[in-house]
Design a protein around this nucleic acid. Structure first.
Lengths: 226, 226
DNA sequence: GCCGAACCGTAACGTACGGTACGGCCCCGG
DNA sequence: CCGGGGCCGTACCGTACGTTACGGTTCGGC
């Protein structure tokens, strides 16, 4: 059968109607998890199953398009590397930490990660091509690394941070921020994250990271850890 | 219909034959992921489906019993709190970190977490009772906390560690050890963890943890972080 | 040796769901 | 006004799989 067009591109060429259908699928995914059916999507989106199959090929294509559609909705705010000092670096790191905690604790992220994890089994992908897990990883953890690493390197060049491996530094920051939150949420733990709690965690993680990677020769000593 | 006996107890009262069946199911789970069928389990275990249903009630019961069976296989090695010094505490923490990394990177753990995550959707469990996610969480992350917290508190009483909240300290250690490993593996990332790499990560995480929570008034200063 | 219980192997049933076909409606170019 | 393409709604098909039923076999107790 002919491949649907949205199977290959990055999901940019979508009509408004198609976006609405994918939004409906996304909402359904959040509500019902992986066992959403094509019939349910068609009913929720007020479209016919025939249209779904024409647009997205099969159930896999619909799922992939939905994940890519959600991924395309998160956009990056670049950080200016000019006039970087400890205060602005701290603020940036806290911002990253707070944003990341908000993302991984959101219903949408949890639902998407659930379906991607569930489909990442050993023998999936007969064509070996799409792979939801790779998409989620690319737009989650790796996207965060791409955004954060320039900040870390700028901090290094400004003499505020000290590390030999930016990747290792990033992964430490990642661990300090996320800790056990994501796996607990994915496993269904009723973990309540308030805005205040997220803010406090962001501050704590940032302070811990600075304590580990802050330059000892800087204008001031490493901040205390609470 | 009558409830099967193993549905309610902790999985202790299992015959050897039943254990063999669960081991077969476990192997199949690792190989094929969540889409293992009752027929496949019966064939692999050389037993009849009727027996499976008599013993475990339904597919859910078989899955639950399998997860509990695997959980019951990991046993705890208690740590002696006598004669605790920095060296022995460091060794203990490195041991915990190494063990934990080995666990979360094992095929069995990945497969079990996959199925538990996949089944932890919003509306699962009509009876609201079993919940694979809770079982995995209880025997994974929370079991680790129960084992590690006494060590941390012993370190605190020995004047080696300083913290006000043992739970927070544990979660930081957890984050420093696991970082992004588990979510990447669950999402299908081909992350290769060698024994040497695990050992190095355990040392690094332990040093970072001691740098953050080591008592500043101790016999020696906080160790340097590599 | 005989009986019943437990169990194996397999066939059969029912259902849910992915995927397809078809009739009808709307809209747009001619 | 007419024809065709795109889409909706729905009925339909095929299959996979959970679940049940049944005949045959083994085994422990008497």
């Amino acid at each position: 059968m002919l491949q649907a067009s949205v199977d290959i591109d990055t999901g940019e060429a979508l009509t408004e109607r198609q976006k609405a259908v994918l939004d409906a699928a996304l909402r359904l995914l959040v509500e019902e998890g992986d066992q959403l059916t094509m019939t349910a999507v068609a009913r929720r989106a007020s479209c016919s199953k025939e249209t779904l199959y024409k647009w997205f090929g099969d159930r896999d294509g619909l799922l992939t398009a939905t994940v890519q559609w959600q991924a395309s909705k998160v956009r990056v705010v670049p950080v200016d590397r000019k006039g970087l000092d400890l205060a602005s670096l701290t603020a940036s790191l806290e911002r990253f930490a707070s944003d990341w905690l908000k993302v991984i604790s959101s219903d949408t992220s949890i639902a998407l990660n659930r379906v991607a994890v569930g489909r990442a089994g050993p023998i999936r992908r007969k064509d070996g091509k799409d792979d939801l897990g790779a998409i989620v990883l690319e737009n989650g953890r790796f996207a965060l690394a791409r955004r954060l690493k320039p900040v870390l390197e700028a901090g290094q060049q400004a003499g505020i941070l000290e590390f030999s491996d930016a990747e290792a530094a990033f992964r430490t920051f990642f661990g300090l921020v996320a800790r056990d939150v994501q796996i607990r949420l994915l496993l269904g733990d009723r973990l309540k994250l308030t805005d205040a709690g997220i803010g406090g965690d962001a501050v704590r993680a940032t302070q811990q990271f600075l304590a580990l990677y802050g330059a000892k020769t800087g204008p001031q000593g490493p901040p205390r850890v609470g």
